[in-house]
Simulated assay, not measured.
Amino acid sequence: MSQPSSWPLPAGSSRVVFPLSLTEQLAEHPLTRHLYPLAYGHYVDAAGHQVQREQHTDYLLIFCHRGRGAFHTPHASGLLQAGQLLLLPAHTAHHYQAQADDPWSIYWVHFHGTAAARCLQLLNFTPQQPVLTLARWRQLIPSVTELLNLQHQRYSLSAGVLAATLLQRIIAEVPRLSDTAQPAAGFDLAALDRFMQDNSHRNLALQDFAAVAGLSRYHFSKKFKTATGISPMRYFNQLKVRLACQMLDTSTDSVRHIAQLLGFDDPYYFSRLFKKTMGVSPQLYRDSHHRQQER
């Protein structure tokens, strides 16, 4: 892991570095191995803060909420200002520092996982454009605060799993809060999402969604993928898997019964879809969740 800076912490700042034993557990855990934090913190009015790394083994997100700073990589350089998010990929040399006349206040996290590289695609980052502006970043503060408050707990696997879950939630929210998130032209995406939620118990086809949007299947699929980055049926199936996770967490219903409640006539197909989406089978997901509760 690339060590966080040893910059002296002023009042109101914090830094959390997980021990190697914990990050090794998170790298193997079925609920966290795809994305988990290694270290994170909050630097307030960080005068004199600067870091230069030629070797960088993990991914790093820096969000500036006040002041300014500068960054430089082999592919890009510029200023990071309030409301902007910088992503530095693994294995990318970099240098960044707070501006002397207006030092930044930043939230930051070092992270890794099997899906870490795909975060660049999710967040629309490229090596040439590593900065994203968030129009409504304050909506993330409750999750960020909850993550920072974990520093008051002892290091444990359960705390690490919760930290990973919060990080995943924060990253998942970023596209919705960015200036570049655009609604699909030609239909109401929010209304369609509600339709999918209300009909998650049905076995619907592409034509059903296209009819709700008032478009042909071809034009609907194209517009939907432009808006969300994935196909309509994959989106619908992922919604069903999220609902399945809630049912597995909160009920004792069998996997077969949950599949039927979500419109799957074939429980084996449902299990394959669940594993493809979550990385584990429905039963292993349930067992892992119950073990966490017991701890």
Rank of each mutant, 00 (worst) to 15 (best):
A11T: 07
G12M: 04
V17R: 15
F18I: 01
L20R: 07
E24K: 14
L31S: 08
L31D: 03
G41L: 05
Q50Y: 00
E54G: 11
E54L: 14
Q55T: 14
H56W: 12
T57H: 15
H65K: 10
R66K: 13
H75E: 11
L79W: 05
A90T: 12
A93I: 06
Y96G: 00
D102K: 13
P103Y: 05
W104T: 00
Y107W: 15
A115Q: 09
A117C: 06
F125E: 08
Q129D: 11
V131E: 07
R138Y: 06
E146Q: 13
L148D: 09
R154M: 03
S156P: 02
S156G: 13
V161E: 03
R176Q: 12
Q182A: 14
P183G: 00
F187E: 01
D188F: 04
A190D: 10
M196Y: 09
N199T: 02
A205C: 00
L206F: 02
D208C: 07
V212H: 13
Y218Q: 12
H219Y: 15
A227P: 11
I230F: 06
M233Y: 01
S251P: 12
L262K: 12
L262Q: 05
Y268R: 13
Y269H: 13
F270Q: 01
R272T: 07
F274W: 03
T277M: 07
Y285H: 06
Q292H: 05
